[in-house]
Amino acid sequence: NKFNKEMRNAYWEIALLPNLNNQQKRAFIRSLYDDPSQSANLLAEAKKLNDAQA
């Protein structure tokens, strides 16, 4: 399933972002599970926040 693969990839990328705190990571990951079709958008948002907090 395409969404499962995208979701799994996004999950690990988000989990490993160095500048997000655990609460932020959990919120993004919860959103991934709520709507796997938004994986790419959620990952992009997480990366933006990660960069902003660098």
Rank of each mutant, 00 (worst) to 15 (best):
L49C: 03
R30A: 05
Q23Y: 13
L20Y: 00
K47T: 04
R8E: 14
E45F: 14
E6A: 05
E6L: 10
Q53I: 11
N41D: 07
I29Q: 13
N19H: 09
A46Q: 00
R26H: 04
Q53P: 07
A46M: 01
E13T: 14
A15S: 14
L42V: 13
R8K: 05
Q23V: 06
A40K: 11
R30Q: 04
A44F: 12
N19W: 08
L17P: 00
A52M: 13
A40S: 10
L49P: 00
K5Y: 03
P18E: 10
N19G: 06
D34E: 08
L16K: 15
P36W: 09
A46R: 00
N19D: 04
Q53L: 10
K25N: 00
L17I: 01
D34N: 11
K47L: 08
N19F: 13
Q53E: 07
K48N: 13
A52P: 03
A10C: 02
K5V: 03
N19S: 10
D51L: 14
A40R: 11
K5I: 03
S37L: 06
A40F: 12
Y33S: 03
D34Q: 09
N50Y: 01
W12T: 10
N1Q: 06
P36E: 02
L42I: 09
N1T: 07
L43V: 14
K48I: 15
A44I: 10
K5M: 02
N9L: 15
A27F: 15
L42H: 05
L17W: 03
N50M: 01
N50P: 01
K2W: 10
R30P: 00
L49V: 09
Q38S: 08
L43A: 10
N50C: 02
A44W: 14
M7P: 01
M7A: 09
Q38Y: 09
N22I: 08
L16N: 14
D35N: 12
L32G: 01
R30C: 03
R26S: 06
Y11F: 10
P18S: 11
N21R: 09
S31M: 08
S37D: 05
E6N: 05
K47I: 08
L43M: 07
E13K: 15
S31Y: 08
D34S: 11
L42P: 01
S31D: 04
A52N: 10
Q38E: 08
Q24M: 05
F3Y: 11
A15E: 05
M7S: 04
F3P: 15
I14L: 10
R30T: 04
A44Y: 14
Y11T: 12
A54R: 02
P36I: 06
K2L: 08
F28L: 06
E13R: 15
E6C: 06
Q53A: 12
N50G: 03
P18Y: 09
F3T: 13
K25W: 03
I29Y: 13
L17T: 02
F3E: 11
N50R: 01
